[in-house]
Structures are given as C-alpha cells and as structure tokens.
Design a protein around this nucleic acid. Structure first.
Lengths: 182, 182
DNA sequence: TATCTGATTCGGTATTTGTCAAATCAAATA
DNA sequence: TATTTGATTTGACAAATACCGAATCAGATA
C-alpha cells in the first residue's frame, strides 16, 4: 500500500464526529457495541461499522468478555502516528548496515525528502533503490500514481521515473508500471 | 458542541491522498492552482475544490501574485492544532476536561515528549498519570520494555520508572511490571 | 475601456459513505 | 447439543464527495 494512501486512511478514520465521540468514550474505559449505540443513539449496526473502521486504522483494539466485545483505545499509537505523519514523514536510516549506503542516504535525504539528485552514478543508484522501495511488487501503477509516489521524494518526478526505468527497477508496458523483482 | 465538529472537519481535510499531496507541495514552496493541477494530473476545477477545503480548514492561505493565486502552508496553525491533539490526547473530545490538567500537559509536553520533569508534586503526578496511559492493563512488562516505553517520553527513564512505582501507578514483582487498575 | 489569463463556480455523473432493519454469525452456557 | 445473546454482515437507500468540462468571474494589463 502506497504510504500516502494509508495516511489518508488514518485521517479518514478520524474524520467523522461519531467516531471521535466513540474514541472519547473508549478512552474513558473499554466499551462494548450496544453500550456505545445506546449512548450515541445510533443503531448497533452503524456503531459496529464505525468500530470496524477505527480498529482497521489501528486506533482501537478489542477483546471479548463473556457476551461482550469490548473496545479500548490504543492511545500511544494515535499520538505517535499523528506526530510522525505531520512533523516529518520520516525514514529510519539507522537500520541498514552498508556504510556507503548509509552515508549517501544521510547526505541526500532530509526528513524523507531527496534534497538533490546525486550526480555520481553510484550514489544515484543508492537513492533510486531507496525510492523504489515505496512501490509494491505485484501492483500495476498508472503513470499518475507513479508520479505521485515519486513526488513524495522530489519535484523532478519525470527524471527520477526515467532513471528507475533505465536502472531496471521499474518496468513499463502500455503506460502501466510495475516494480521489478530483484 | 461546535468543537467536535470542527475537529472532524480538520481531519476530513487531511483525509484524502490528493490533499495530502497538495499540502506536501505547498509546504515546499507556494504553488498556484494550475501548477498543482499539472503535477497531479487533475483538472484545475478539482484542484481548486481541494484548495478551497484546505483553506477552510485553516491549513493553507493564499495571496495573489500577478495572474496567479499562490497557496502556501500555514505551518503554525497545523502544528499548533496537531500539538493540541498530542498534548491532551482525546481529552477535548470527551465531556469532562480538567483545566489544571490540560494546562500542565500543555506546559510540560512538546510534540508528545516530556520537556522536563515537573518539580511540584501535583504537576508531576499529572504527567506521570499521562505517561502510565501508554501501558496496558493485564500485561506483564519486563523492565526493558518499561524503559523503552518511558524513553518515548523522556531520557531519564530510571527516575520516571521509580516515580511510577512510588505513586502506585505501576506494580513491580520479581522484575516484572504491571499497570495498576485505578 | 477592452482584453487577457488564471481561478472559481456551475451542472452533471460516478463513487463513496453513513445509516438502518433484518438476517446471519459465534461465543457462552444450559 | 440446543439455546441465548450480543456482534457482525448484508442489502438497500439517501446524502455527501470527487471529478470533469464549460461557463463565469476578477485581477492585471494594454
């Protein structure tokens, strides 16, 4: 899933008054479906629907207690996720071990954005390999989506798209792009 | 309560991939409508629509430059709004808000991190109660995990861990920690 | 004033979303 | 196993939303 889509999903989960109310209720204490439906004067079907969205977004978790399915807030995740998304967009480069690669990524990325396209071929390959990781295997991307993903890294999406093709990291056929298995 | 509605509006504005893209583009530098439409391959009517929503939500502001209407990110508002949510969690969405507690959280947390440990006992208790909420009930934490969680808030995990025990918010037995039911 | 140019608004369509009642499901328990 | 009970899923419908092309608007400029 392209990162941007999942971020939008996250906000979408928060983008309805009833769901914010439900989060507030579940923050106070774990609640079950009919309990919430009673408080908010909504049908249990509707509440179940909202609870499902909130759970998928990672904001709630639930466990069964006798007849009841109790939902409670996953507080830490909510706060960290919002902070991550808004303030940076960030990448953790510390996990990879290749020192050259680490240095190049440190030098050319700032807050997840490519500050400039490296001129040296070897360095350029490193950043291109980094960028291509935002594409899923087994997914057909129209050019519009390709551009959007690359735009998260750098303005000059046309150049980068061309390079990704040239390096054999992306494959293009009939205007549809796919990530090449390495 | 208008508060809840406007919170939902705020998230709704962020709840679409194109709008996140637009925010990203306008964060880099001011952009005008057709420029964005060209990059995202959307009609200028659609982009104008998104820009309108983002402006209404207070995320963008615009000014005219010759023929162009340039939109730029209102960084301050975005960050303040997000910060509010992070400081107080979902407090604002629920019914009861303790003003003292809210103020202490605002004063001592920045972007989800504890800027310093309050000296006053009463204030310190507020931040400790805030921190303990990142722990689950009915879960056995080894000390290492406890430290990791506290480290997300402040570097001096040893002091905070000791205080959490002392206040009776965490319970320690044989090196295993559990959150105490209140 | 008349014209040019980018932005916005309008009209219309396709898609998504919120909602409920009814049917179905699944865990607990008799 | 059969029953009870709350949760979820299904199906239907209305409302909201995303999107586009065309018409209109408004500031800039001649």
């Amino acid at each position: 899933m392209p990162k941007l889509e999942s971020e939008a999903e996250f906000f979408k989960a928060l983008a309805h008054p009833s769901r914010l109310l439900i989060l507030g209720l579940c923050k106070q204490k774990p609640r079950h479906t009919e309990e919430i439906a009673g408080i908010l004067k909504l049908s249990k079907a509707t509440v179940s629907h909202h609870l499902s969205l909130l759970t998928t977004a990672g904001l709630l978790e639930s466990e069964r207690d006798q007849y009841y399915q109790n939902y409670k807030l996953k507080n830490a995740l909510l706060e960290r996720k919002i902070a991550d998304i808004i303030f940076t967009g960030l990448e953790d480069f510390s996990t990879n071990t290749d020192p050259f690669r680490t240095k190049v990524l440190r030098d050319f990325f700032k807050y997840g954005r490519l500050t400039q396209i490296p001129v040296q071929r070897k360095k350029r390959n490193v950043v291109l390999e980094k960028i291509v990781q935002s594409f899923e295997f087994d997914h057909a991307y129209p050019e519009k989506e390709v551009n959007q993903i690359i735009l998260e890294f750098h303005d000059d999406f046309a150049t980068i798209r061309r390079e990704l093709i040239g390096l054999g990291l992306l494959h293009r056929e009939n205007g549809i792009y796919t990530r090449v298995t390495t």
